[in-house]
Design a protein around this nucleic acid. Sequence first.
DNA 1: TCTGGGGTCCTAGGACCC
DNA 2: TCTGGGGTCCTAGGACCC
Length: 411
Amino acid sequence: MDVPGILHADLDAFYAAVAVLENPSLVGKAVAVGSGVVLSCTYEAREFGVRGGMRVVDARARCPHLILVEGVFGSYTEYSRTVFDIFESYTPFVEPLSIDEAFLDVTGSVHLFGSPADIARRIRRDVRKQTGLAVSVGVTGRKFLSKIASQVAKPDGMIVVQPGQELEFLHPLQVSHLWGVGPVTERKLGELGLETIGDIATTPIDALIAMLGSAAAHHLHALANNHDPRPVERTRRARSVGAQSALRPERRTMEDLLPILQRLTDRVASRLRAKGRSARTVTVRVRFGDLSSVTRSATVRSPTASTAALMAIERRLLQKVLDRYPKHEITLLGVSTSGLGFDEPIQLAFDVDDDALGGGTPHEIGSRALDESVDEVRRRFGRDILAHGSDLLSERTDFSDGLAEVMIKDD
DNA sequence: TCTGGGGTCCTAGGACCC
DNA sequence: TCTGGGGTCCTAGGACCC
């Protein structure tokens, strides 16, 4: 008999559980982590209707004795590392989904540690013993099904779905259990009278396509029939890096918005550099008084992680929005970078004093050099640098739309 | 009921090239 | 010269997830 070999392990109420571990007087109490909104809360708080994502004032209204604690990010990463080390002691095939959950393919580990269900039990025991945290586990032969099983198993449980029993387990569940069904899709499905996963499985694919579009329809139809060929993948590279801020929409002028833009861009650029990545596409998101929002994006030829270069692009995008919506109350919602490339050694063809640039990786030095040259170009020519090339491209230098492209070459 | 910050993926239309 | 098909890239927006 085949053994189901894919586990989904998910720590229960992770941030709240860590808060309780670090302050034993909180054991058994209704505790929430967060400020402004609830990031995580204990099951004692959930009994009163408190949920993650809820505003703290609303949570307090439902649960007046709620104890609110601030998050401590350092402890979370420490606990997380310990837990992931335990995962990796059972299989090298661990795919992190977030700080507190992962897929594990244990198919190759059964001769060492026993059946997948045995391994799940051992992991739960090890995590409990070494950290004090509860982890719920789903054990099946498919990623999506194990994810659903672990959710159903919570809190502090495990569910094993044996081969041949998958549809029996799956079909009675509400559609919202499926990964990819949120409020909008749930409502659309409901309009067709589809409430359970079994309903989706028996609906002709064409009807789903008409309602949801091709990709979503095929995706949900496949999952509802227990088809999910996706393997457990050990690493996944980030595809975008962004930063958000949520101020009330009231500011209007470029001068008001620039400091916010600078702060967000600093965050994004330094995180890009820390990862050794650079971005080709830059997106600016703006929110209006009625809470609707728009985006403007631009793609440049060569990836950059330079704060000043990103700022120059974002400024233009922001100006585009201001020109298009001159009367609106607006705020800057966020900036995001995608089309990520890798750390490239770069050297400025522009006139920059090497000694002034300090140490670091070539990428860091290059990014700082670009920062300086953007400022210098602005001083000398009154222009912004839009992009830089990976080859020497003096003939591409283009002031036609008010921007220069700076020349940078590979070393 | 949009309050938080960080992401992923998909769609649709247009430009451009062969 | 016109029509058509296919592919790629870019832009803008939206749904969903943790």
